[in-house]
Every structure is written in structure tokens, then in C-alpha cells.
Design a binder for these strands. Structure first.
Lengths: 193, 193
DNA sequence: ACAGTTTGCAAGTACCTACTTGCTTCTCGC
DNA sequence: GCGAGAAGCAAGTAGGTACTTGCAAACTGT
């Protein structure tokens, strides 16, 4: 692993833990086992290093599970997708929290917060519209609203699960099951138990 | 307005804008039109001032609109409540974002994030259970899940509305209308258009 | 009018911050 | 083996950070 990669790696980790101001060049150098001047020789400034490392860290999508092109088992497919989405968000929750708090000072990293959500939104909407075309859900009701609610529910649970007493004391699987059931009921899914 | 109150006031504002580390004693003193030493004479330390001011700022609930004891018009009452809830969160969104990002460094201010949500959850659950007892909604489906989803949806919209392209390009009223409709449909409300 | 509290002001302490400079040492391709 | 780029090291710059001290001025209640 090159010095550059090591620096990008530990910087993203430190940023998630301590935020922009808390991630000092001294700490980065220590954590990476590198001399502090190397940072400036490699990246020019703290800002450049932070931006590059945060963007890199937010983009490794770890081969995310997508929704199938043709909906078959709505419930199972949505649950699988939601679980994967939850895990992806949960893994980056500290990073996202800091980006969310600091996006006014550093608007460049707003995409970090939005990108995942945007992709998930468009894919789920596409999927639910296909399901509607197949007659798997009723033709009334807003698919977009359902998508947003499901995504927000999953997002919030993933983001606040560690804060304690924010989310209800349920398993991730349990919570997602409840959410998917509720959404399907609202959309008038034909095969709900 | 006493010096103490002025300090508490501007400190909370600065914290919402710049976070813990970004809220320096020098800036606080400047913004409050007060000498820096006054801070330490009044509060002893930056930490004490920040804690007191943040807790104070998070607690002024501005006479929040509650849900009625006896449910009558489910849709209208939920929409009114959700709008008030949305406004309350939106007013404190920067404060909440920073508390959420920094709660590991300063766990004392976790209540700032949780408290409002907890109260809203219990009240909405109580309300929906009353509605169920009155036969206004179906007896199947989890009232808790519906509550969590509605609250999360409102919370997320209020928190990310300024980030841009995160929430869909709709009015607050429009979005909340969609959310409430969806929840009522999922709960099998009897009088949905 | 007098005592006590509160505030302002100026200066200083000890440490952290990003960032630079000059020089030496290592490593890697040819 | 040798030259070039990358790294380490020590020191320094200029500024910010929380916090302290001593003293004078202003306000407060009795």
C-alpha cells in the first residue's frame, strides 16, 4: 500500500471520527505512520487531502445489491434491498453525519450525502412502477411517496441506531420487515399475508 | 437582557453554525459584544457554556401543537401535527445536525437529538391507538411502524431540505400530505378519499 | 455614600494549528 | 552503480486556542 493510499485511508477514518477541524494534519500523520510534511508534499494542503479522501471513501459502494429488473416477489426483494441499503448506510454513518453537519462550510462534499439516496430513490421508484405495470400493486397512491418513506425510514434507522434510545429496540431485520410490510400495504400489494 | 442570557443565546447560534470546535470563545465574546474573560468568569469554561446553551436552545419548544386526545379527523389532525413537528425540527436542524455528528465526543448532548423524537413517537402512537380503538383505522398492521415511518419521513425532510436535491422538489405541505395519506392507507383508515 | 459585585482592558501562559525550509537518507528503475 | 523521486528529520513561522492574572471603571443595593 502506497503512502498516498495509506494517507487517504486513515484520513477518511479520522474525519468520520472527529470531523473536519478535529482531523488535524498531526493526527493524520501519526495514524498513518508518516511524517507530517509528507502530507503537504503529496496533497499540497489539508483541504485537498480531506476532500479527496472523503470523496473516495463515500464512493466505494462495496458491490451493492440492486433490485431486479422484473419484480417477482415484492416483499422478499424489497427486504433484501433494504437490508443491503441499511448496511451500506450504517457503515458510513459517521462520515455522513459529519458531512451533513459541515456541508455549509464545505459544500463540495454535499454529494457524499445525496448521491446514495438519489440512486436508491430512482431505482426503487423504477422497481415499484414496474410492479405497478405488472399489476402487483394497486394503481392508486404515489409510488414516489412510498419510495421516499421507505428510504427515509431505512436511512434514519441506519444513522441513529448507535445513538441509543432513538430507534425502537428492535433488530434491523425486524424493523425493515415492518417498514416493507407497511409500504406494501399502503400500495395495495396483492400478495400480502 | 443580562450578559449571561446574551452569552447563552449567541453561543447556541454559533454552535449551530460552526460546531463545537468552530465555536471559539473569541467568536462568542465578539458576537455577544462582551469581553472574552467574562465568559470564563460567568461559566468557568467553554465546555460549561456550550453545554448549558445547547441544552437551553434545544428545550424551548415554542408551544408545540399536540395531537388531540380524542381523534376525530385523522387526516387533518395528523397533517396539522406533522406540519408543526416539521417546523420545529427545521428551526433546529443545524443544531441537531451538529449534535448528531458530535455526540460521540459529547454524549451529554444526545438528549438534544432524541428528546423531541421520543415525545413525538409516544404521542403519535397514543393517538393512533386511540383511533384504532374507535374503529377509525383497521385493527391489523403495526401502529408503531406507521408512527416511526411518518416521523422519520418528516424528520428527514426537515433536516435535509436545505441541502438541495436531497428531498424531492415539493412544498413542505405537499410532502406531508403525501406522507400522511400513505400512512393512513397503510393503516386502513376508513375515510380516505 | 459606601461596599460589593460585575465588567472591561491589557497582557501573558502554554499549547495547538497549518504549513514551510533545508538537509539527509532511502529506494527503485536503468 | 547511479541518478531521481520519495521519504524522514529538525527547526521554524505566523497565527489560533482555552484560560489566567492584575487592575481600573462601572453599576447595584442598602
Amino acid at each position: 500500500m502506497s503512502t498516498r493510499e495509506a494517507l487517504l485511508d486513515v484520513t477518511a477514518r479520522l474525519y468520520a471520527e472527529h470531523g473536519w477541524r478535529g482531523t488535524t494534519t498531526r493526527r493524520i500523520a501519526e495514524a498513518a505512520g508518516v511524517n507530517e510534511v509528507t502530507i503537504f508534499r503529496q496533497f499540497g494542503s489539508k483541504e485537498a487531502l480531506l476532500l479527496e479522501s472523503i470523496q473516495a471513501a463515500s464512493q466505494d459502494d462495496e458491490g451493492q445489491v440492486g433490485l431486479p429488473v422484473q419484480p417477482a416477489d415484492l416483499r422478499a426483494e424489497l427486504v433484501t434491498w433494504a437490508l443491503a441499503h441499511h448496511a451500506a448506510i450504517n457503515g458510513k454513518r459517521q462520515l455522513i453525519r459529519n458531512c451533513l453537519a459541515e456541508w455549509e462550510d464545505h459544500p463540495e462534499l454535499a454529494p457524499v450525502v445525496c448521491e446514495g439516496g438519489m440512486k436508491a430513490f430512482s431505482e426503487t421508484t423504477r422497481y415499484l412502477k414496474a410492479a405497478r405495470a405488472q399489476g402487483l400493486i394497486a394503481s392508486t397512491g404515489s409510488v414516489e411517496a412510498a419510495t421516499v418513506m421507505l428510504m427515509n425510514a431505512v436511512f434514519m434507522d441506519a444513522m441513529t441506531r448507535d445513538v441509543g434510545s432513538m430507534s425502537p429496540p428492535h433488530t434491523v431485520a425486524e424493523v425493515i420487515d415492518m417498514f416493507v410490510n407497511l409500504i406494501l400495504r399502503a400500495l395495495g400489494a396483492t400478495e400480502v399475508a
